[in-house]
Amino acid sequence: MPPDCEIFSIGIAHDTCDASMIAEYSLSGTLLEEACENALNNFGINEIFALSTCNRVEVFAVGSPQKTFNACLGAITLNGVRPPQKFLASAKIFKGKDAIIHLFETASGLKSQMVGETEILGQIKKAYAFASEKNYCKSVLNRVIQKAIQCAKWIRTNTEIGSGNTTIGAVAAEVASRIFEDVSKTKILLAGSGEVGRSVAQALCARGAENITVSSRTWENAKSLSDDVKGSAIGFDRVAEELGKFDIAIFALSNAEHIINMEIAKAAEKYRKSKPIFLMDLAVPNNVEKSCGKLGGIFLYDLSDLSKVANENIQMRKNEIEKAKKTISEKAQYLFARLSKS
């Protein structure tokens, strides 16, 4: 790495702001490409890598110290279209070795809302594949990201930080099992047939669920998943009117904010009379208005509630987490020293 260059990262995550802010600053689709192209072409940096998930939005860059900050901030805020000061008030900044450690810990699940979860590694791989295809990552970030992926795999193989329920699907199924001791007799609605929805469906089936109804904005996707779990499917336009017929309704629809509002929730509560309905909102932005949880017959769980369940055994895994952090620090320092000499 040239002496006048540094590796730099800036971003927000679940531990610095709420889900609505992460959604506000998210980078996906054409926005992601535009943001990276703008940073490379207009700020004079050498490399860039952006990671945007439901729990974090972060940008890593390599270039001269005076350029990397502006490039990263410009990428996430779309050159000021999104409020820079609001973002900076919640942002975390890492430079040099600390930026490498941060990426290693993120890839290993140590900085996830559900500590030890595995989805983040897949998300980093996907983001890296996109950046590689566009040639955004070169000599420095290629090595850093590849080493982060290798480190994450080593951590999962050689430590127990992933023990217990650490995926969203597994935790959602755990919560469902706590609410209803026998989920085989529970009527479950699953709105969302993407990666999260499929994970939830599989985890519920593993716990004995036999009555899962799937809905999605695409009928073919809903039917495919419902067939896989030997359930049934309903059209997306029927979710609101059918809500009260279910004991548990799980929502995991991306880019479908507030499909369940107070009016719909009240109608479902009235339909169920004295029987409560449990709603799980796994989406960012939220699919269910938070105010719905104030109704006496509605019990609403969101990602922050599920993370508490996932991290219940955090004390048991404390030694494993410390072991993982020590190894990550050593690997990151070694890589940083090698980069500094190259």
Rank of each mutant, 00 (worst) to 15 (best):
G231P: 05
V175P: 03
F251I: 08
R238L: 08
D4M: 08
G194M: 05
A256Y: 08
A35V: 10
I120K: 02
E269D: 13
N55A: 00
E37M: 05
I145F: 08
S64C: 12
C292M: 12
N55K: 02
I314C: 01
R317F: 09
V171R: 00
T77D: 08
E210A: 12
T157E: 14
K273F: 05
S224I: 12
R338S: 00
I101P: 02
G122K: 09
I12Y: 00
A252N: 01
A35F: 01
D281Q: 04
V284Q: 10
S291M: 14
G74L: 08
P84T: 00
T77H: 02
I149K: 08
Y301E: 00
E220F: 14
S224C: 14
K331L: 13
T77C: 13
E160H: 14
K95N: 14
M1E: 13
K223N: 13
C137A: 13
S224Y: 12
I248D: 02
F94N: 13
F180M: 11
A127P: 06
S28L: 12
F246L: 14
I93F: 03
S28R: 14
E322A: 14
N158R: 13
C292K: 09
I234N: 06
S274D: 15
Q333P: 12
G109M: 02
K266W: 11
F180I: 15
N46M: 07
V239R: 11
P83Q: 11
L31W: 02
G296K: 05
C36W: 07
T218Y: 03
D4I: 12
V239Q: 06
W154Y: 14
V140H: 10
